[in-house]
């Protein structure tokens, strides 16, 4: 190394491999855009469920933030809150919860989501599974009854009072208001009551906070795809499989199996396909891999919905596909130019 001459202009020759032009994308920017894309869904959830949605989303996000902050502090690492990814985890996690879920359960799920789903694997970029879904899956297995009690949408006093169950004392069994309603999928599966598809599309039905309006979720997703911050192959793969399988089964037996429209717009499929399955860390890298990953999720969702014991299976389908995505990456590894496969 030579010391540059004092009069020489302050420019150094940099030699480095391509790419030379960067798009200016950073974790912070992409995550901020995802938050922006989620905003319509969040606001609609608050409109639909009132204060119950607001406190659930606030507490869910705050518990995730606090867990990450305290973990980084306890380990003497620089805080990783500022990359915005934890806010997305928190908001997405809250959107998967039913309105009126006791807030202490919301907190526990948030802690589990961030601690077990993300931090213990090594933080952002190392998580095998979508952290938000890890938190939800834990709650679903730990508190099955609370997670399947649904507070109805569009309650008259939703902006003035909270559901009885929300403020349950920590670690005690919640008591519910007398009014509760079934989700469209549960109504279909257990009582054969079909909800109107246009209601589902616009979101005027009960369910988890973020699984109501397909229209708004699609808008957010298309925004992200247009800005190339999301792989369109993943939702495309999911939608194609769901449409094909449900069309076939619907034509075989229209009374037992609902139509493709119903399947697409009900439950967590939209939110899962657009925002959960497309988790950049837990999904495959190549375009072809993403499409296969989408197909796999679609098939699993349909198997669970049609023949499984539960009405909804998007969460388990995505978690399962997350586990398989490293293998999909290995199968779809692009062939370098000039490389020939050797017979072995």
């Amino acid at each position: 190394m030579t010391i540059p001459h004092k009069k020489a202009p302050n420019k150094t020759l940099q030699i480095r491999p391509s790419p030379h032009i960067s798009g200016g994308a950073s974790v912070e920017k992409i995550m901020a855009n995802v938050i922006l894309a989620l905003m319509p869904t969040v606001l609609f959830a608050i409109y639909l469920f009132g204060l119950a949605a607001l406190v659930t989303i606030l507490i869910g996000t705050f518990s995730c933030l606090l867990t990450e902050y305290l973990f980084c502090k306890a380990n003497g690492k620089p805080s990783s809150i500022s990359d915005n990814s934890i806010i997305i985890t928190g908001v997405l996690y809250s959107l998967t919860l039913p309105p009126g879920l006791p807030l202490w359960m919301v907190c526990i799920g948030g802690i589990i989501a961030v601690l077990l789903g993300k931090l213990l694997f090594g933080g952002l970029g190392y998580n095998l599974f979508n952290p938000a879904l890890v938190g939800r899956a834990f709650l679903q297995a730990a508190f099955p009854s609370a997670m399947t009690t649904w507070y109805p949408a569009m309650n008259a006093d939703r902006f003035t009072s909270l559901p009885l169950s929300t403020l349950t004392f920590p670690f005690t069994t919640p008591s519910y208001d007398t009014i509760s309603s079934a989700t469209p999928l549960a109504a279909m599966k257990f009582d054969q009551i079909l909800t109107d598809s246009s209601d589902l599309f616009l979101g005027l039905s009960s369910g988890s906070l973020g699984e109501t309006s397909s229209l708004l979720i699609l808008t957010g997703g298309i925004y992200l795809i247009a800005r190339r911050m999301m792989r369109w192959q993943i939702p495309a793969g999911i939608f194609i499989t769901v449409v094909i399988i449900s069309t076939i089964t619907h034509n075989i037996s229209p009374n037992t199996y609902p139509s493709a429209q119903f399947m697409l717009f009900s439950g967590g499929l939209m939110l899962g396909a657009m925002f959960m399955a497309t988790d950049m860390v837990a999904s495959p890298i190549t375009a072809k891999g993403c499409f296969i990953y989408g197909l796999l999720i679609g098939v699993l969702v349909m198997i669970i919905r049609l023949w499984g014991g539960m009405p909804e299976g998007v969460m388990y389908a995505i978690l399962f596909a997350n586990a398989v995505s490293p293998h999909i990456d290995r199968w779809t590894q692009p062939r370098p130019y000039g490389y020939r496969k050797t017979k072995s």
Partner: peptide
Amino acid sequence: LLPDNFEKWTIMLLPGGGFFTLGLWLL
């Protein structure tokens, strides 16, 4: 030991709870 209105964590009786508990003890 705990009062009647304690909400039971069903997952702890399932195999998944075994893995969680073992992992946390190892931690």
